[in-house]
Design a protein around this nucleic acid. Structure first.
Length: 596
RNA sequence: GGCUCCUUAGUUCAACGGAUAGAACGGAGGUUUCCUAAACCUUAAAUAGUGGUUCGAUUCCACUAGGAGCUACCA
């Protein structure tokens, strides 16, 4: 039982005994005492004044007195302006410490038995991954780990956007302008090469439009009539007909892109349990349209197009099938959702998609509900904010896109420079160093992204590199390395410690109790983060923990503590702290080094 | 035009309706015969504006100002 629940339960009994009114413990407000006051946990007594019919301080004192008298766990209490601050006994904290130190699965919540699918990344094969994708990938990956820590069975999937006119544009440009170039012949990463093709198409197309406008055509018509675009559309028709030549080209270029993506995913440390391709799923959902028509959920317009009227829900009419019978994006999404829920027996499905698609997911949920799927309410759109530059949005036209591969490389270089400057790692083999620099660079990047509330727009300034000092990933990594260093030395000196070191007549100081209290918060942070689908909660907790340790380390001797019992107690404490740090950052996908 | 979201120190981020709004970077100043100074300590600095709800509002509501997104027979 957590201390919060303990106090809520005890306070509920106190209220009943004192005032004869039964209150639900869940309705009581218990929070961690702010550090400027003396106390471990605080009961807010204001809401109880209606029951007690007395002043805040009197009520607080009455309840506090009852708790201290009836519960040996409660050592002392004080009341400040309607806040009842409660202090637990040392024995209590040692029990808490002992429990978590001896529980290897501390912080992993009991199994929910639920299957949750998380879709993220979902790249477009025309563009190399950039900073926006990095946020998506890191969020998707960490939310997956988070939901797993919350006891769920998580299935990570991605849906690759590998077909459509836009893909044909790249193919066309490659045929016309790239003279058989391949990743091998150019030494270019496949996704970047294809990205170049797409840019080249855009340039060609705009040039054609410009000439046509100069030739007297109005811009609207020119944009539709430009030969490059027409050719791309013809190519798409051929693709849909299964034209051999077009399909071969498509397969070849896609394979380049996928090889490039794989490399980036590997560097980021991201994997999927299943990869879906739009080329294989884009026809899904058409049957659902028929079903919807039969149910009267959809209606057909005179031109044959099918619509869902959402005006009663405050939205517009939404097209679900074109007049020519071909499907639109949402048709596919309806179909894939249905298939996934049945195929994987999903209890819920999280889509990690940017907030510019809020409307789309609102519509998707609504339509699925209208189609009678009971799980429609179990769809969650993890709607994250854009990553902006100081000038605003990233724009490929203005060349301000921050490329994922470049950024990771830059972080690596940065980590290398900082490490070499410190000169602390001279005796480590080169290969180890290389790994370490990757770990630190990536840790800095991941923490930078994931510490921000997913919902919020965040800012990245490419001119200032991501920091390695202060509230950062490397700060946490450094903290871990410090702890490991002490533990290593303890091992070398043959100093033993373990959960049995707790409660050998050792009295923890206030500083130690602070650490125990903070460590003990971890499971509830996991639950909180999971409920909010927010890894930022875990990131901020990890930082608090690291910060707290550094302060403790600064003014407490651990290995040099003369009393062996106290020394073992402290070693066990920092060892537990290190393992919680590893678990917490593990959720974020951040590795912690032994040395740095 | 309609709908949605956002606005907290100079900057980047925190704060289940709770106490004196926390950090970090940057600024100013300090700590290394002591387990890793990527650390620690001190210091100045913020809730866009006006009302409302209540014991209590950064948080909820209304309006104002500023910013972003959506509003495709694109995906």
């Amino acid at each position: 039982m957590t201390p919060e629940l303990f106090i809520a339960g005890a306070a509920s009994k106190a209220v009943e005994a004192l005032y004869g009114v039964s209150v639900d413990p869940a309705a009581l407000q218990v929070q961690v005492t702010r550090k400027e006051f003396e106390g471990d946990y605080t009961l807010v007594v204001f809401p109880l004044l209606k029951i007690s019919h007395s002043a805040p301080d009197a009520t607080g004192n009455a309840i506090g007195g009852y708790l201290a008298a009836n519960y040996p766990e409660v050592a002392r209490f004080n009341v400040v302006k309607g806040f009842l601050n409660i202090l637990f006994s040392e024995v209590y904290w040692n029990e808490v410490f002992s429990d978590m130190a001896s529980d290897p699965s501390f912080g992993v919540l009991p199994s929910s038995g639920k299957n949750i699918m998380v879709e993220f990344s979902s790249p477009n094969t025309n563009k190399p991954l950039h900073l926006g994708h990095i946020r998506n990938n890191l969020l998707g990956d960490s939310v997956s780990r988070l939901l797993a820590a919350c006891g769920n069975n998580v299935i990570k999937v991605t849906l690759v956007n590998d077909r459509g006119v836009h893909i044909c544009k790249s193919m066309l440009a490659w045929k016309k302008l790239f003279d058989g170039a391949t990743p091998e012949s150019t030494g270019k990463k496949g996704d970047h090469l294809v990205g170049d093709c797409y840019v080249a198409f855009d340039k060609l197309y705009k040039e054609q439009v410009r000439r046509m406008v100069e030739g007297g055509m109005d811009e609207e018509t020119a944009k539709k009539q430009a030969p490059a675009l027409k050719e791309a559309h013809e190519m798409l028709v051929k693709w849909e007909q299964g034209d051999r030549e077009v399909r071969d080209l498509w397969s070849m270029m896609n394979s380049w892109v996928f090889a490039g993506f794989d490399q980036t995913y590997r560097a980021l440390g991201i994997t999927f349990d299943r990869v879906y391709y739009e080329s294989q799923t884009y026809l899904l959902g058409k049957e659902l349209v028929q079903k919807g028509l039969q149910m009267g959920v959809f209606t057909t317009d005179p031109d044959g197009s099918v619509w869902c009227d959402l005006t009663a829900d405050g939205l517009d009419r939404k097209l679900v099938l074109r007049g020519d019978g071909t499907s639109v994006y949402i048709t596919q999404d309806l179909g894939t959702a249905e298939r996934r829920f049945s195929e994987y027996r999903l209890d819920s499905h999280v889509y990690v998609v940017g907030n510019e698609q809020d409307y789309h997911f609102q519509v998707l949920k609504l339509i699925l509900g209208k189609l009678g799927f009971p799980w429609a309410g179990q769809i969650y759109h993890l709607s994250y904010g854009m990553v902006e530059l100081p000038e605003g949005k990233m724009k490929s036209r203005e060349g301000t896109v921050v490329d994922a591969d470049d950024l990771m490389e830059k972080m690596y270089e940065e980590a290398k420079a900082t490490s070499e400057e410190s000169g602390k790692l001279a005796d480590i083999p080169a290969e180890e160093k290389e790994k370490l620099y990757r770990m630190i660079g990536l840790g800095a990047l991941k923490y930078f992204i994931v510490k921000v509330d997913p919902k919020k727009t965040m800012l990245f300034n490419p001119r200032e590199s991501i920091d390695f000092n202060g509230n950062t990933g490397p700060f946490i990594q450094y903290t871990h390395a410090r702890i490991r260093s002490i533990l290593r030395k303890a091992g070398e000196q043959g100093i033993g410690f373990g959960p049995e070191s707790i409660g050998q007549g050792v009295s923890p100081s206030a500083k130690e109790i602070r650490l125990i209290k903070l460590l003990n918060l971890y499971p509830s942070k996991v639950a909180e983060a999971g409920a909010a689908l927010s890894p930022a909660v875990i990131a901020n907790y990890s930082y608090d923990l690291a910060k707290e340790f550094n302060q403790y380390y600064h003014d407490t001797r651990i290995l040099q503590e003369p009393d062996p019992a106290m020394r073992a107690y402290r070693l066990e404490l920092i060892s537990t702290l290190a393992s919680v740090l590893v678990k917490a950052t593990g959720i974020l996908g951040i590795g912690l080094p032994e040395r740095m």
